[in-house]
Design a protein around this nucleic acid. Structure first.
Lengths: 158, 158
DNA sequence: TAAAAATACTCCATAGGTATTTTAT
DNA sequence: ATAAAATACCTATGGAGTATTTTTA
């Protein structure tokens, strides 16, 4: 069992049980996923997905259980990478907080100071305002800057 | 980042920061652990443990965070293997025990509790009754479900 | 035919081992 | 002198790719 195998079966489950499609999603090849799936099934001793001729038909009950755990594992692995990214101060972008005047004045200042301290690269915007105004702002907002999106793409896949 | 690396750093943290000792615990070699630790630290971009000359001194704060997630991951991986182990023992299915009242009351409870503990997926039915009734029940019963029998046939030997 | 999974094969990376070196008790 | 980690080096495994085959719709 490897993290990669778990990522793969999650991708398959999340791609309408289409391995080819799942392979694209995780930037790998269809034979690669087929093989790893088979290896994992061999190791566990049962099928995660039922097959109908040359296609994946459904997730087995056991497969569902495994997938639950797999999702947690992959999420936690992402958390570890997030810890690492934070430490490397490899976090930038913009954060727009549109909120009421009361929150802005009495609640937010302290946590925001901490945030600013920890992620100096994040441009922080606080926009006090009323409800309608607030929603409108959010609708216009780009929460992830083009530069950080570009960097994310450049980065190695999980 | 691999499951093995996470297992290794947990072993180190749980062995008084003694890599040699940790290696024994996970049935691997000291250089193996040293290397994987280094690789993981390189990938994450920071040290998980501080070193003092040729010995491991302490866990870094970042290391503590990583270890928290790592423990969850390893535990969940163990859960997946537990699911597999249970399935391989064919724990799904039904067990019908038709027996006399005396057995049901005085002999069976303890072993059945143990069984229930070990194979929670087994639906357990105890049917106290007289002799004729008992035989009739057994004749109607399917002790092994078709699905689990099929799986057993498909399985490769240990 | 088209589309999808499985299989065959090939190659390169690397996991993990042994042997050795370095360093602090 | 001991014990521990790091380093160097080597080998076998296997991960992931390309090409191909099989199978159904």
């Amino acid at each position: 069992m490897t993290l990669t195998q778990l990522r793969f079966i999650i991708a398959i489950a999340d791609s309408n049980l289409n391995i080819t499609q799942a392979a694209a999603k995780v930037h790998a090849t269809q034979p690669g996923l087929s093989k790893q799936l088979k290896l994992l099934e061999d190791e566990l001793g049962f099928q995660l997905f039922t097959r109908r001729a040359r296609s994946v038909e459904a997730i087995t009950p056991a497969g569902e259980k495994v997938l639950k755990h797999a999702r947690i594992i992959v999420a936690e692995a992402a958390n570890i990478r997030a810890v690492a990214a934070n430490l490397r101060r490899d976090v930038d972008g913009e954060l727009l907080i549109a909120t009421t005047h009361t929150q802005a004045r009495y609640v937010l200042p302290r946590p925001l100071a901490a945030l600013k301290q920890r992620f100096p690269q994040v441009a922080l915007h606080v926009a006090p305002g009323g409800d309608a105004e607030t929603v409108a702002r959010h609708e216009r907002a780009r929460l992830i800057s083009p530069s950080s999106a570009a960097r994310a793409r450049r980065r190695r896949p999980i």
